[in-house]
Write a protein that binds this DNA or RNA. Sequence first.
DNA 1: GCAGTATTTAGAATTGTTCTAAACTCCTTG
DNA 2: CAAGGAGTTTAGAACAATTCTAAATACTGC
Lengths: 135, 135
Amino acid sequence: MTGTSPDFPARLRAAGLRPTRQRVALARLLFEGGHRHVTAEGLHVEVKATRMPVSLATVYNALNQFRDAGLLREVVVAPGRSYFDTNTGHHHHFFVEPDGELHDFPSDKVTIAGLPAPPKGTRLARVDVIVRVRR
Amino acid sequence: MTGTSPDFPARLRAAGLRPTRQRVALARLLFEGGHRHVTAEGLHVEVKATRMPVSLATVYNALNQFRDAGLLREVVVAPGRSYFDTNTGHHHHFFVEPDGELHDFPSDKVTIAGLPAPPKGTRLARVDVIVRVRR
DNA sequence: GCAGTATTTAGAATTGTTCTAAACTCCTTG
DNA sequence: CAAGGAGTTTAGAACAATTCTAAATACTGC
Ligand SMILES: [Mn+2]
Ligand SMILES: [Mn+2]
Ligand SMILES: [Zn+2]
Ligand SMILES: [Zn+2]
């Protein structure tokens, strides 16, 4: 068994978001099944293929809200292209150029030693490691 | 003495680029003085303040050509914002949100251990470490 | 200097994303 | 189980960053 089927309306409510039909449809695409890296455009294409199509503006709204609520994380790898990542745990990325594919790798085995202290008046928010590889 | 004054036309020729007035003006702004992180818009504002103003299209062309020639490196930190970095040596970045400032730090002291092997059919191009900090 | 190619330019076009304001829907309350 | 109101969705306009177009101009080798 993969466990209890996820109750998306409840998960959205828990995140402080009304479980509208559009948001539930998007949450289903994003969160049932394994982790994903999606672009707004890509998710819009997917949801349009559904019985419940959603406008592009709503896809952007939802992705930004999900990110702000901590349900997604945003990964910036290339100019003019934002990926939204359903894996919000600690991990890093391979970025395959020029295809633009993103692959996760766990951060448990990765050690980063010798980082300097944050500049005065700032505190650490996150360390992003992007390993760029080519075909 | 800081050494011989840099001969920008020669450096551009060495990079396979004709030393046009525009490219020389931009190279001067970029490469005399210490390392810099510039945006296209920012560099355009700077060069407009010069006796030799340059169109925005040419600024973009030159930045892309300089990058392709290895004179600059491009750093992507936030969606919709590309920085061009005159420091092409190994180093990493602090990114101060929400200001958008980029600061270098040397990679000599930083050790990254335990990186997994690149996905099949790819080889490593570069490892970017971006330390995100907040005020 | 001339020819010929590379470069520059203004402005249009493209791309990714956000905004606007009107229509709609979820949810609480009576 | 109706309102009624706040929150949400939507089409389309607007915006911001970047690239493209095609005509004018500037390097370079001869
Ligand atoms: Mn955003
Ligand atoms: Mn580019
Ligand atoms: Zn990821
Ligand atoms: Zn740098």
